[in-house]
């Protein structure tokens, strides 16, 4: 138990630090440019938009990089599921906007099933992430998964009951 923890703890900061270095190496120049030009750039729409776009790109790139490097395989699996849920929820919402919400029960239970499952999965992800270990002294990853299963059962029971 203890040595495993220690190993993992060792891994995470190093990964973070690598991400940090890569981020600074790739994104330091536009970063500096922004910080100097940001305040006067409010008036000049052209320069501000270009710099913020650049900045935005670097943010996204950094985010993707750090995610690719530091997230473990399991977390990626969870994230894939969460993405699926977001897509499913968005599709339902789109349908509701386009085709009307006539069986409102059905829409609500379908939509809240995705939303509820999303937040439960997000909670599972938070609780199983090593970096958050200190926040949850009483929740081991196994317990987190058991909780997740229990909550999902409750959620889907209510959804099925509500769908009519």
């Amino acid at each position: 138990m203890a040595p495993k923890n220690r190993n993992n703890r060792d891994v995470t900061p190093s990964a973070a630090s690598t991400a940090q270095t890569s981020a600074t190496s790739s994104g330091s120049a536009p970063q500096a440019a922004v910080s100097t030009s940001a305040k006067p750039a409010v008036n000049k729409s052209v320069s501000s938009s270009s710099s913020s776009k650049q900045d935005w790109n670097s943010v996204v790139v950094n985010l993707a990089n750090s995610y690719r490097d530091s997230a473990p395989q399991r977390t990626k699996l969870i994230d894939a599921f969460m993405t699926f849920l977001v897509v499913a929820g968005a599709l339902q919402f789109l349908y509701c906007v386009v085709a009307g919400n006539y069986p409102f029960n059905a829409f609500l239970s379908g939509f809240s099933a995705t939303v509820g499952q999303f937040v439960l999965t997000a909670s599972l992800r938070i609780q199983t992430t090593e970096a958050n270990k200190s926040d949850f002294p009483s929740v081991s990853p196994e317990r987190a998964f058991a909780d997740f299963v229990f909550c999902s059962l409750v959620l889907h029971f209510f959804c099925v009951n509500f769908i009519n």
Binding site: S123, Q127, F136, V154, F158, F162
Partner: peptide, 22 residues
């Protein structure tokens, strides 16, 4: 704000709202 707050609140809200709509 803490991750604990996130877990507690979102679990409560997602399940509780559905429960109340029954």
């Amino acid at each position: 704000y803490s991750t604990r707050l996130y877990v507690a609140y979102t679990t409560w809200y997602a399940l509780g709202t559905l429960a109340s709509m029954q």
